[in-house]
Design a protein around this nucleic acid. Structure first.
Lengths: 190, 190
DNA sequence: CGGGGTTAATTGAATGTTCATTCGGTCGCA
DNA sequence: TGCGACCGAATGAACATTCAATTAACCCCG
């Protein structure tokens, strides 16, 4: 069933691309179809509606983020080193996939996201939380709600990637390391 | 003639409200007109197009954020105290005006924002930067690019407000203080 | 092996709706 | 009488979605 997956994938990826360029609006199904090299009707073979397409794209993209994060984590390393690896690998992922970043942010602030019951099985979120739970339990990090730590760190990564993208600031490797360091110093056990 | 004609203000505020509820798309001009209590044509008396309306709304909203921040800053206080006041006042502003938060985020990730040359006179940004420049110069904060510090702190505020809004986490005052503290500890001079 | 039959995949023109924008006209005021 | 604010029905373009028709994939019986 590979050929089918091909088309579905092409549709998802075209949508992602086009949303980066033209926004959530300004991306008609006809344009998606054209870019994906399929007929308009074909999209409806794979996705019930535009809304469903976008929601599936969200899951797809989130899965990718998770993989980027997990890929870089080597549990054998000391915790602090793992923290920096996590920070940089996620940042790199967002920097190298600006369309993911944009789509993600647009989706989260759209009614699609608010309307849906939040996915309780959200693997990305869960993995992130576990990482910080571990840090707190082992006293590498200060006593704090791991959810909060996860949120703040992920926020710093997203923010940095967004600013980078807009070229408001061009970050050198030192700058990035400094940002990660600020986060670490703020959260580390006293 | 007021600083802003009553109707113009009503249009701006209705747009803000509706975008929170229905998103950037899903907010037709006719709906804005109805909510603002004016005729569709009237909007075009004040705004050239929907795009212009949205861009003006952005400036308007940014101005409000600036005021929220400045309002709380008392330069007579010690720097650290000013930092916490800034963090909390901006957070409170976003928490109490979720429509601003949503709109802001949606706009920044839309093509409207990317297309426009970035406003070099951006007063919000400038005020923020100056605050952190001062902290670095007076050695309250570590040696770092003040732009970066400003970005990271603002990011932490926005992230917290967003998560709060989605009710993923309900923050108590302690939680908030802890987040601000993490940021301070990370940035403070060693 | 082959061909007839069943199902799934794909097409793209047609449909009906929604929307931004326009414009001829009304109203109130100087 | 003139002007600017304001109205809202009318216009035309753009769009999501549908569907009847076409093609490819597969399977089973002879």
């Amino acid at each position: 069933m590979e050929a089918l997956a091909e088309k579905k994938k092409a549709i998802l990826e075209s949508t992602l691309q086009l949303i980066q360029e033209h926004g959530f609006h300004g991306t008609p199904m006809s344009m998606v179809a054209k870019k994906a090299g399929v007929a308009a009707g074909t999209i409806y073979h794979y996705f019930e509606s535009k809304e469903r397409l976008i929601c599936e794209l969200y899951s797809h993209v989130k899965q990718q983020s998770l993989e980027a994060m997990q890929h870089a984590d080597d549990q054998a390393l000391p915790y602090q080193q793992r923290f920096f690896a996590l920070w940089h690998s996620l940042f790199d992922f967002y920097r190298d996939n600006p369309s993911v970043l944009i789509f993600f942010e647009q989706f989260v602030n759209s009614p699609y996201y608010t309307q849906k019951p939040l996915d309780p099985l959200d693997a990305f979120h869960k993995t992130m939380r576990q990482f910080f739970e571990e840090g707190v339990q082992q006293h590498h990090l200060r006593e704090a709600n791991p959810e909060i730590l996860a949120m703040v760190v992920h926020g710093s990564i997203i923010t940095t990637a967004k600013v980078h993208r807009h070229k408001k600031l061009q970050f050198g490797g030192n700058d990035l390391q400094q940002i990660a360091q600020i986060m670490w110093d703020g959260m580390a056990a006293r």
